[in-house]
Design a protein around this nucleic acid. Structure first.
Lengths: 243, 243
DNA sequence: CCAAAAGTGTTATTTGTACACCCATGC
DNA sequence: GCATGGGTGTACAAATAACACTTTTGG
């Protein structure tokens, strides 16, 4: 260790510890992220990821869930998917002082319009594609979060977190297509999903019309499984580098 | 945000920010981890992961690499694999004060005997299996790190990080077997590794005797690829939960 | 009847797995 | 020769991908 063993609480320049949230949803066939408009400098007027300080007696996870509730305006966020992404600690990432930020990724079903948090900041859903530069290092955080979500869809039972409690396989497929930016073969998608026991389970008699036209689709809910074996691989973007 | 926007550097209880390192190697056919014996309370006499404070002007990544050099006694750690694992921030994880720790995973080829760091702490390689309880929440960190390394071997070109610059395919296979705790089919392992272009590349004329006996093995070095397509999946531990 | 979306079936191809087998070396 | 570890070939089973086809709804 590189510091006196009998920690002196104020011997060091204090670090502020914050959480930043990349909150995703799928709306209008596109992956969207919740952003807030900054009211003060630095980066006044620019979009930023929602976030805030970790309080002295709470874990980063708890702080993230508290912020999630405040920013989305949802009363019950206990069922939402929230997962630690990674920690960003470059000394100059905030010009005001040393801030170490633990970033989290959250997934929501098609949500209500957000209200700003306690302060007056405007919060809004925006498509991930074609965003101007964000405040601080939030471009990097958002890119990392997107990549993580896309990768986890392959091997984890993550997609139902984007869907309401009851959903159709078509809706589930749209989640994959929106996040990956690809189109998938419906029959094969269907088979792969149903081949993993516990990924989704059918709601016995129920069916729902989806787009007005077309055959009514069977309804499913999320199952108990957490891992996807075998994985649902996204198509190689180009000439596959393998074999 | 939940704090005054004009950050007052000392308005909050300060957080200490540290790094903890799970440094792995493969020795004697087993996955081993670098541990230090604690000299002071709390947890005096128990094994702990090496680590230390993040200094005011360095990133967590830089702190981790600095600690890695100090704990292993290696002069050049720039080529070693070092990767952020996740951050542990439970308020009571250190009884002395609020410590948020960013954990890192490092991989080494069969290393020299470690020397303790600047302080008198004893540092030692120990097999991951059958370790008594570690200090703080380091059991949890170590378990998470092991799981991460095992999972990443499947889809990332990670295994050569456990090997010297020139290695045989047999040595590479032993890495997989030690980390996963399984035995693999040699012909199939070989094919899969060579089927991914850029995973390993053969050193033209070279060959080396491995165990004294047996045919000399061709030597390889790590290639430029970082991802493994298709992945090298570990055998399902039991009745596979899929299809 | 037509369009749209759900759902089923079939087939060719690729990939994975479990082996049997040969090669080169030390003892 | 024989044990040991490296390296190659092959045959069967399983997973994947592409696409034709049927079903059920609204207009």
């Amino acid at each position: 260790m590189n510091a006196p063993e009998g920690y002196d609480k104020h011997a060091f320049e204090p670090f502020a510890v914050t959480v930043d949230l990349a909150v995703f949803t799928v709306r209008a066939g596109a992956l969207q992220v919740l952003l807030v408009e900054r009211g003060q400098d630095p980066y006044a007027g620019q979009w930023a990821l929602p976030g805030g300080f970790v309080l002295p007696d709470e874990s980063a996870e708890r702080a993230a869930r508290r912020e999630l509730a405040e920013e989305t305006g949802l009363v019950d966020v206990s069922g939402l998917h929230l997962e630690q992404l990674r920690t960003y600690s470059e000394p100059d990432r905030d010009p005001r002082m040393r801030v170490v930020s633990v970033a989290y990724t959250a997934l929501l079903p098609d949500p209500p319009e957000p209200r700003g948090g306690g302060d007056a900041a405007r919060a809004q859903w925006l498509p991930c594609d074609g965003l101007g530069p964000l405040a601080f290092d939030h471009d990097r955080i958002l890119a990392d979060a997107r990549e993580r979500v896309g990768a986890k869809l392959e091997y984890a039972c993550l997609a139902p977190a984007f869907c309401p409690p009851e959903f159709t396989l078509g809706e589930l497929q749209q989640v994959y297509e929106a996040v990956w930016g690809t189109v998938l073969d419906r029959p094969n998608f269907r088979r792969k999903v149903l081949a993993t026991p516990g990924f989704v389970e059918q709601i016995p008699g129920a069916a729902r019309l989806t787009g007005g036209r077309g055959k009514p689709a069977a309804l499913y809910r999320a199952g108990a499984a957490t891992a996807l074996h075998p994985p649902l691989l996204r198509p190689s973007p180009e000439g596959r580098p393998s074999s």
